[in-house]
Simulated scan of single mutants.
Amino acid sequence: MNGGRQAVWKALMRTTTMILLAVALASCAVEPKSEPVDIEQMNKDALGPPVPITLEPITFARIEGDGLFGAGCNFSETQGGDLLLIAQGEYAAFLLDGEVVKASPDMGSDELSYAARAKYDGMANSIRLELDETSGAQSGMETVSYPGALTITDDRDRPVYSAKGYFDCGA
């Protein structure tokens, strides 16, 4: 029986050696290097690109009908062009898809001429006004025209409208 035990023992040792060798080889296998995950880019990709908006001209009838009168700064892309934004001390407003969209002034932002603010925040948009107040020119009895830029962002702070133009500020 000694010979039988030795044969079993040798077979057991060979099997054990083979198992240990297989485990050792598996632990030495080279795993592919994974690149770090860019969570910010994943979120941007999931949101899709920002959807640009087209501002509609605000007519005098619309100003009158919606009570948008008051002192402040009004934006148009060209001097004397269509009025696209009204910015006053209490709100800023633009017309989108036939509806007036309003935003509240950011009281921590710079105060511009006639109580307008440099930034307004709304439910779905934020509005930024950049006026070159050193380059203003008298454009009417009570108005001054300033070159500048208007930027409107979506609720993720991505620009959806951006234009250079003129702000007519007055009463």
Rank of each mutant, 00 (worst) to 15 (best):
G3E: 13
G4S: 13
W9P: 00
K10S: 12
A11M: 14
T15F: 07
L21I: 11
V23M: 04
A24M: 00
A26H: 03
C28V: 02
C28A: 13
V30A: 12
E31W: 15
K33C: 08
D38H: 07
I39Y: 14
E40Q: 15
Q41D: 05
M42I: 11
D45P: 01
P50L: 01
V51W: 06
I53Q: 00
I63G: 03
E64D: 13
G67E: 11
G67A: 04
G70Y: 08
G70V: 09
A71P: 02
N74K: 11
E77T: 10
E77W: 09
T78L: 01
D82V: 03
L83A: 07
A87H: 08
Q88P: 03
G89V: 09
A93L: 03
D97A: 13
G98N: 00
E99H: 14
E99L: 03
V101E: 05
A103G: 06
S104K: 13
S104P: 07
P105I: 12
G108E: 15
S109C: 09
S109G: 00
D110L: 12
Y114W: 08
A115T: 14
A116D: 13
A116H: 10
R117I: 00
K119W: 00
Y120G: 02
M123C: 11
N125Q: 09
R128K: 14
L131S: 12
E133M: 08
T134V: 12
S135N: 15
S135A: 15
G140Y: 05
T143Q: 09
T143R: 14
P147M: 08
G148W: 04
I152C: 01
T153E: 07
D157A: 04
R158W: 04
P159E: 09
S162M: 15
S162I: 10
D168H: 05
C169W: 03
